[in-house]
Design a protein around this nucleic acid. Structure first.
Lengths: 133, 133
DNA sequence: ATAAGTCGGACTAAATTAGTCCTATTTAAG
DNA sequence: CTTAAATAGGACTAATTTAGTCCGACTTAT
């Protein structure tokens, strides 16, 4: 259907790691164990932290920890925290700043896109990490 | 969740147009009526033709016509005809040539991605044009 | 004081997607 | 039997998005 971003892939790997270990883990630990680019994962972790999915500790023995249980973390939330958007089209965005399609007035498929968006969010977006991992 | 391509957007507009008119229509007619780039739409129509979703007539009074009824056309089929892929990750692709991810052996989220893919295809991909439009 | 972390912004590179252009072929109609 | 209106399809460019890197600042356990 539509491709998932690397950021989201890496985010899911990290969440899985944190869920399994149950403890505080560093980005280095996670990026080594999953063979993914450390610096990019660092960004991913920061985004998920800002969103409130995970928790962080700075300094020497710092790292990240799950703040929500896997049952509470929806795919939608992960994607939103990492891609800043979960809409399949501009016009389907909840953020009006992102909904500035030039064809808005003449577009013939706004309603269909709305339906699609709802179905996607409901069936896929609302899945939780615990269902998935 | 994930953004839909312009090709698919244009394709859906065209299918809607064909379904409504019930007759043969030219790409010019459709691109004018929908305010979309003619040349790009032409590519889109060719792809859907090759896939067997629509039918074409060359020459002066030529154009395109639905070959399947809206109930028979799934979103998945439209996307596949236009984007050549419906998988959310490389490894979830049905085409082994597209499934050449370098991290395949070490990846920790293959199963989750598989689950996600199934859910997406089942809930969203299998929707038909008639349900949508 | 130092080393191991996170924080966050700026930047570059790579890949994908959107869009254009050109030439060939088909065919209805004058 | 020529012309004009179409589709067919390949090659190309431009624009946008995504991936990935780098750097300097701040935090904190040892």
């Amino acid at each position: 259907m539509l491709r998932i971003s690397k950021r989201v892939e890496y985010g899911l790997m990290a969440l899985q790691y944190l869920a399994k270990s149950g403890q505080v883990a560093t980005t280095r630990e996670i990026s080594d164990s999953s063979n993914i680019p450390h610096d990019l994962l660092a960004k991913v972790m920061q985004s998920m932290k800002r969103n409130g999915i995970i928790d962080s500790f700075q300094g020497v023995r710092g790292g990240y920890r799950l703040l929500l249980s896997p049952e509470q973390i929806t795919l939608n939330r992960v994607v939103f925290s990492l891609d800043e958007e979960t809409a399949i089209t501009e016009c389907a965005s909840e953020n009006p700043e992102h909904a500035t399609c030039a064809m808005f007035d003449t577009c013939t498929i706004k309603v269909p896109m709305q339906k699609l968006q709802m179905k996607l969010t409901e069936s896929v977006g609302n899945m939780t990490i615990s269902e998935l991992l």
